[in-house]
């Protein structure tokens, strides 16, 4: 296969020449994915934490549903958002279909359940450790929730990154609600899909390589930030008391 070699050459030349179309597509991809992740984080963190803290009828059902929603097919989400935002749909008057905003909305629906479900797990474990201490100190549910989110921030970063991975990789939803319009809603994944359909596999693969590099860069930056902050704040990812064995009798 010469496609692999061509793909590297293509990717390299696109990057080296700072291809303006590529820069635009990369910028939009980052904006859509990071925007969706930001919104999903604002929704998912408190929702997941609340689900971890509060006991209410139907909670188990809610947890199961949330975990299942992590695997929502992007195409289905795209279709639902399309039908909602279509001029013939209930939110048609907003005129959002085929805009980056529509893509963000669809990706929020995909990413928020991931952030919320992983947050619930993190916060539930942390709550098991903190619960008695915080109750003893007189923390109400609201204060406890805030403290848990803050103290769990490094683990929660992983949840947010998982959401970003989902957002940056999916093509089904943004294709339907964005329309893959050149210079308006074309992102990395839809551009790749387009080049595949044109039969230009080398260019498609080249774009894919760039997407992978982008994704690795975002994750790497987050990892380094987390490491640096974690070293200065909690001394390490795990609780490792120095010296004595912390094991209980």
């Amino acid at each position: 296969m010469t496609d692999f070699g061509d793909a590297f050459t293509t990717a390299l030349s696109l990057v080296v020449t700072l291809d303006p179309d590529l820069a635009e597509i990369v910028g939009l991809s980052l904006r859509v994915s990071l925007g969706a992740v930001a919104v999903a984080t604002v929704i998912g963190l408190p929702a997941g934490a609340a689900l971890a803290l509060f006991r209410f009828p139907g909670r188990h059902g809610a947890v199961i549903l949330l975990n299942a929603l992590m695997g929502l097919p992007p195409v289905v989400v795209g279709l639902i958002v399309y039908l909602l935002l279509s001029r013939a749909g209930p939110l048609g008057v907003l005129g959002l279909l085929f805009t980056p905003t529509a893509m963000v909305i669809a990706q929020v629906l995909l990413v928020a359940p991931i952030v919320a479900a992983l947050t619930r797990q993190v916060i539930e474990d942390l709550w098991a450790e903190y619960e008695e201490q915080l109750k003893s100190l007189g923390a109400g549910p609201g204060r406890a929730l805030g403290m848990l989110l803050w103290d769990g921030r490094f683990s929660l970063l992983t949840a947010v990154l998982a959401g970003f991975g989902r957002a940056s990789a999916e093509v089904g939803a943004v294709m339907i609600v964005g329309g893959n319009i050149d210079h308006v809603t074309r992102v990395m994944t839809t551009a790749i899909a387009l080049e595949v359909s044109k039969g230009d596999l080398a260019l498609a693969l080249g774009l894919g390589l760039i997407l992978i590099v982008l994704s690795v860069s975002v994750n790497g930056a987050a990892f380094l930030l987390k490491e640096a902050a974690e070293r200065s704040q909690t001394g390490g990812p795990r609780q490792v008391p120095r010296g004595e064995d912390p094991a209980l009798p």
Binding site: Y130, E132, G138, D151, G152
Partner: peptide, 27 residues
């Protein structure tokens, strides 16, 4: 008017100072 220290000390994922400060803030 009460406080409790648990068999396994519960350390907030914060600095030593912040651990004390958080408790006082809650009160």
């Amino acid at each position: 008017f009460q406080a409790m220290v648990f068999q396994r000390p519960v350390m907030l994922r914060r600095s030593v100072t912040a651990n004390v400060d958080a408790a006082l803030a809650l009160r």
